[in-house]
């Protein structure tokens, strides 16, 4: 949802053209390599927001493809609402966790190898981020460096978590694996997406 609100934010400054918004967003996240959003996605999002009455599209010279977007009061209200909300990521939906848990069940997969591979990959990623961060100039690219730091710290946390799993893998293995509670009757419980 953040792309939508970022566009609203950019428009809250002043009315902008479509390509202006594309470039503005890329600059905001510090480059395509950080968050590669295709122009098509931007335009789709803009079109949806026009539909919902959050922004208005002003044709220029009658041309359908070229024109300026302006934020509406409803759009402004929506933006403020976004600022008031807090952002907590959903940490529990971890694909590696699933992999690991399943590997403990399956004899043909070695859980500790899994950790080694995951760790190598995480380190390679961390190394890449570190290099990128090194290439930045702290005097005028501090914001981007902070973003790099965020990624690095998350990766670091993941690595520490891996270390922890590794050191206690034996204990986990010795404990009974989580089994679904068997219900003889009735529908399976509804699952929220």
């Amino acid at each position: 949802m953040s792309v939508r609100h970022s566009l609203l934010g950019l428009l809250a400054q002043k009315p902008r053209y479509g390509y202006e918004l594309c470039a503005g967003f890329t600059a905001l996240v510090g480059g395509k390599e950080n968050w590669d959003v295709k122009p098509a996605q931007i335009y789709t999002t803009l079109a949806r927001m026009v539909e919902s009455g959050l922004v208005i599209f002003n044709n220029l010279n009658g041309q359908q493809s070229k024109g300026e977007y302006t934020i509406t009061p409803k759009g402004h209200y929506e933006l403020m609402d976004w600022f008031r909300s807090s952002d907590i990521e959903e940490p529990h939906q971890d694909p590696f966790y699933l992999k690991l848990m399943l590997s403990l069940e399956l004899d043909e997969v070695d859980a500790s190898r899994l950790i080694v591979i995951q760790r190598a990959a995480l380190y390679q990623e961390l190394h890449r981020i570190t290099e990128q961060r090194q290439a930045l100039d702290p005097h005028n690219q501090l914001a981007q460096m902070m973003l790099m730091d965020k990624s690095a710290m998350h990766l670091e946390a993941d690595l520490r978590w891996l270390d922890m799993i590794e050191s206690r893998l034996d204990e986990v293995q010795r404990q009974p694996s989580p089994k679904p509670a068997m219900r003889p009757r009735g529908r399976p419980p509804s699952q929220s997406a």
Binding site: V116, R119, A120, Y123, L126, T130, A152, M153, E156
Partner: peptide
Amino acid sequence: PRIAAYADRIIFLKDGKVVDDT
């Protein structure tokens, strides 16, 4: 880990043995 990430290569030791070399 953050300091290690500056390196070109990481050697992991465990119980006196090399367990990984990335």
